[in-house]
């Protein structure tokens, strides 16, 4: 049965199954899927024969900036099951990314995300979903909505202070991080990059307790090392969880000038020159073996990780030490 044949009355009845009475609109419209700007709150879109009741646009915020509305990403309710879904329209974008003084070509590719969704089908460590074509023939992705907290939200909530966090919560987080690296290894082993590994692209599914990776539509033009940028993202996440947040030179200068005075140029992040990588100088109880991994992402590094396997080997040794202590 094609839902596009549903009458307005039938659709309103279906909506009433999943929505509180005060939120049920008086009338609904089935919108064409070609242009996401024309699809609004309370509209209906029909994809693969299923009617979806559109709710708000999704938002994304970073680095304390105001949340940015993503007009091409909308929350919706599958009117046949009542499940919340994320509808992600094709938003093709080619742009120059600027990071640490470097400029490189990036692309937002619906095709890449559709390909990876197929690759990771059935896995608990990746968001699940499928792709279909909108009426203009572009890839539109229908994703499961994941209930849970992002990695950074989780980190901030754990422990009274860093020492308490490190000795009582970090070992568990480290194991979870190792699982995340293994998930990325799975992508790399299959020739795919994630493209935008960030702590807010890792959501701990409250149903399974396992982190799921989201947002893999980014791609970057790589040179010698196809996965270098992904490894950089993993390094940032590791430094973030180890420090229970990012430790910046500005923070130290104002709040812990004694610690700031002990830092040298060698102790900072190779890309973000205001972030401290040598966390042992801030928290001396961090084991040397762990700090050595962090220092692969510092300006003083002479050797970099080439692949996830190298990182996993070092992390495995650290985990044994951290869990044994």
């Amino acid at each position: 049965m094609n839902a596009i044949n549903y009458t307005e009355q039938e659709l309103l009845q279906m909506i009433s199954l999943w929505i509180p009475p005060e939120r049920i609109p008086r009338k609904v419209m089935i919108k064409d899927t070609a242009n996401f700007f024309r699809v609004d709150y309370d509209d209906i879109v029909v994809l693969k024969g299923i009617p979806y009741f559109v709710r708000n646009n999704e938002r994304e915020g970073r680095f304390g900036m105001e949340d940015e509305q993503k007009f091409w990403v909308k929350r919706a309710i599958d009117l046949l099951t009542g499940r919340v879904k994320i509808l992600k329209w094709a938003f093709k974008e080619r742009y120059k990314s600027r990071i640490g003084g470097l400029v490189f070509d990036c692309v937002r590719s619906p095709l890449k995300e559709a390909r990876i969704l197929k690759l990771v089908r059935g896995r608990e460590d990746f968001v699940q979903g499928e792709s279909t074509k909108d009426s203009a023939g572009n890839f539109l992705r229908i994703l499961d909505y994941i209930r849970g907290k992002t990695l950074d939200e989780t980190v901030q909530l754990k422990g009274k202070n860093h020492e308490d966090f490190f000795f009582n919560h970090y070992p568990g987080l480290l194991s979870e991080f190792i699982a995340i690296v293994k998930s990325i290894k799975f992508l790399h082993d299959n020739g795919e990059k994630h493209g935008d590994i960030r702590r807010d692209h890792l959501i701990k599914d409250s149903r399974t307790g396992i982190y799921r990776l989201i947002d893999f539509d980014y791609n970057y033009l790589h040179y010698e090392n196809k996965f270098g940028y992904d490894l950089f993202g993993l390094g940032n996440v590791l430094i973030h969880i180890t420090g229970r947040g990012d430790i910046t030179t500005q923070d130290l200068l104002h709040n812990a000038p004694d610690k700031f005075s002990r830092l040298t140029e060698d102790d900072i992040n190779i890309v973000f020159h205001n972030r401290v990588t040598n966390l042992k100088k801030i928290y001396p109880y961090i084991p040397e073996s762990l700090n050595r991994i962090l220092m692969h992402f510092s300006t003083s590094a002479r050797v970099y990780y080439n692949n996830t396997m190298e990182l996993l080997e070092d992390l495995g040794e650290v985990r044994e030490g951290v869990l044994a202590s």
């Binding site: 990071i99 640490g100 003084g101 470097l102 490189f104 790589h222 040179y223 010698e224 090392n225 270098g228 940028y229 950089f232 190779i270 890309v271 992402f297 300006t299 590094a301 970099y304 080439n306």
Partner: peptide, 9 residues
Amino acid sequence: SKTEEFLFG
């Protein structure tokens, strides 16, 4: 640069 070598090899 070191950053470039780190990110892209």
